[in-house]
Design a protein around this nucleic acid. Sequence first.
DNA 1: ATAAACCTTCGACAATGGTTGAAGGTCAAG
DNA 2: CTTGACCTTCAACCATTGTCGAAGGTTTAT
Lengths: 120, 120
Amino acid sequence: MKIGELAKIANVSTSRIRFYEKHGLIPPPSRQVNGYREYSEATISRLSTITMSKALGFSLSEIKRILPDDPRDTIQRSELISNLEKKLVDIDQRIDDLQEIRKKVKLMTTYLKDPNSGPC
Amino acid sequence: MKIGELAKIANVSTSRIRFYEKHGLIPPPSRQVNGYREYSEATISRLSTITMSKALGFSLSEIKRILPDDPRDTIQRSELISNLEKKLVDIDQRIDDLQEIRKKVKLMTTYLKDPNSGPC
DNA sequence: ATAAACCTTCGACAATGGTTGAAGGTCAAG
DNA sequence: CTTGACCTTCAACCATTGTCGAAGGTTTAT
């Protein structure tokens, strides 16, 4: 399977695939005699895993850290769970931060609407 | 007041101050005969306003949009309120998004811990 | 045989928010 | 007078997540 086919099936651009390869998110594929990249079916699921993980809010570097280097590896489930739990804590922190900010913006808005009632 | 002094007082780097000026977040100061930037006290509060706004989660381009070009301008309060209210909506959206992601990550974690109980 | 469609590499561009360095000018003190 | 500390500009670089185009090779179809 050449890169163009893979791109269509996985619904990503060819440049993106090369980019992911360059940055170690997908393993370098074998090459045909002419130098073209030769992909197996496995890469499709690899790519969709990456796409889904991105949709879950993971950055590419997180995805790289979480997924095993070689897609043929069996994922260390315990490690994956621990990674996800760290991510949960991280998400909770981000939500808390946003709620703090929300409060402050709200306060400013309220104050601006009626300065007399304000805390300043 | 030269840029170095201002930097110390406002607790930002001189390069940052020049960066903000270049990107229109602070007005270009007058110059001394030798070409050095000459700042007034007003710039200190301008800088701390920017710093606080950043802490409130505003990006520099948002801050630029929200703050009047000339710090001597009276802020259009109604406009500021409207900007802040847009920001509130935006923050709420981001919180919702994070909570969606949180749910999904949680689901994955739960599933991994006990695949039999899972939805897949 | 030739055109279209594909592949290769590499480098530049985008936005965001700056930092760092080079090359040079200025100022105050010893 | 010279040293160090400050200032100037401009350019390049960092990370992030890619996209786009150039220049060239390959494959497929007509």
